[in-house]
């Protein structure tokens, strides 16, 4: 899908983005200083214009690519790749884990969240035959503990202690 319609989706996204960006610049506060010859909205507006133009060029290119691919597909139906279920699962789960990790780290604390995150993330990334829960848990505890300790003692960086604090 991305092969075929990628440029189309991206260009539409950027066209809408450029319009929103331009509208947002209209609400910027204006300076009363006379010395300023361009306001804070000048360059962002130029950039919004630039995005619009190049997104439009990409749209034209995207339409051409999609058309060309349609032709090819008519000749050869088997070009579409099989859907990678594991790939989507691995990436999706990884994203979810990272987002949860960052969200929960302040509430629950660095030590616990990191151990849980590391174990789950290793589990998700490992091939099923290489999943070794004992190893993962040991590595997670050692990593979490040593990172916390090293940053606290040597670099004066106090990571969130959460419910343990």
């Amino acid at each position: 899908m991305i092969e075929k319609y990628g440029d189309l989706y991206a260009s539409v996204f950027f066209l809408i983005f450029a319009i929103f960006m331009y509208i947002a610049t209209l609400n910027f506060q204006q300076s009363d200083l006379v010395v300023l010859t361009i306001g804070s909205e000048f360059v962002p507006q130029l950039a919004a214009g630039g995005i619009f133009i190049f997104a439009f060029l990409l749209l034209i290119k995207g339409i051409k690519t999609a058309k060309a691919m349609n032709k090819d597909e008519a000749a050869d139906v088997q070009t579409s790749k099989p859907f990678h279920k594991t790939k989507v699962f691995t990436v999706g789960a990884t994203i979810l884990l990272i987002v949860l990790y960052v969200t929960l780290i302040t509430q629950i604390g660095f030590l616990i969240t990191t151990v849980v995150y590391l174990v789950l993330q290793m589990y998700v990334l490992a091939e099923p035959i290489k999943r070794n829960l004992f190893l993962f848990v040991s590595i997670a505890i050692i990593t979490s503990g040593s990172v916390y300790f090293v940053f606290r003692e040597f670099f004066n960086l106090f990571l969130p202690s959460g419910i343990l604090g």
């Binding site: 995150y117 290793m122 590595i139 990172v147």
Partner: peptide, 9 residues
Amino acid sequence: HILLPIIIV
């Protein structure tokens, strides 16, 4: 699979 999660942390 062991390195990447540590990198994220």
